[in-house]
Computed example of a mutant assay.
Amino acid sequence: MKLMSRNIKFNTHPGEIISKQIIKPNKLSIDKTAKLLGVTRPTLSKIVNGKSAISPLMAIRISKVFGGSANLWIRLQAAYDLREAEKEFEDKQIKLDKYQQNCW
């Protein structure tokens, strides 16, 4: 069974979006942005560098400080995670058969 390809060449972590759409255009530092969000610098740095996921709590923080919807950040993270899982599934060449329910 082959997974349906979504033809996505690059899988952008939402932390990169925070960096490019919020931090850089507003000339903020990681330190200043972390303070605005009420988190530590290492916490934000891990997210911006794609090492940590955006949690629901972080999504709410981003929406409260910078506007927009927390739901958007959760959807971006879920889409990123799903694409990573699809890559891993394909790389591991996992073979599964579709379950066929017996009809009586």
Rank of each mutant, 00 (worst) to 15 (best):
M1F: 13
K2I: 05
L3K: 08
M4L: 11
S5A: 02
S5F: 03
R6G: 15
N7V: 02
I8W: 04
I8C: 14
I8R: 10
K9E: 00
F10Q: 12
N11E: 02
H13T: 04
P14S: 07
G15C: 13
E16Q: 15
I17G: 05
I17F: 12
I18S: 00
Q21R: 11
I22Q: 06
I22H: 03
I23F: 12
I23L: 15
I23E: 00
I23N: 01
K24G: 13
P25H: 04
P25I: 06
P25M: 10
P25Y: 03
P25A: 03
K27D: 03
D31A: 13
D31V: 11
D31P: 09
D31L: 08
K32V: 09
K32I: 10
A34H: 06
L36A: 14
L36I: 08
L36F: 08
L37N: 00
L37I: 11
L37K: 05
G38Y: 02
V39G: 02
V39Y: 02
R41K: 08
R41T: 00
R41Y: 01
R41V: 02
P42Y: 03
P42C: 05
T43E: 04
L44N: 00
S45F: 04
K46S: 09
I47G: 12
G50Y: 01
K51G: 10
K51A: 13
I54H: 00
S55F: 05
M58S: 02
K64P: 12
V65Q: 10
V65M: 07
V65A: 15
G68H: 05
G68T: 07
N71P: 03
N71G: 13
L72S: 12
L72I: 12
W73L: 03
W73D: 00
W73Y: 03
I74Q: 02
I74C: 14
R75L: 11
R75D: 04
A78G: 14
Y80Q: 00
Y80V: 01
L82Q: 10
L82I: 14
R83S: 14
E84W: 03
E88W: 08
E88F: 12
F89Y: 14
F89V: 13
D91M: 06
K92A: 01
Q93I: 09
I94V: 11
I94N: 07
K95C: 00
K95Q: 12
L96A: 15
D97G: 08
D97H: 09
K98R: 07
K98D: 01
Y99Q: 09
Y99N: 06
Q100C: 14
Q101C: 07
Q101A: 15
N102M: 06
N102E: 03
N102H: 09
C103Y: 06
C103T: 11
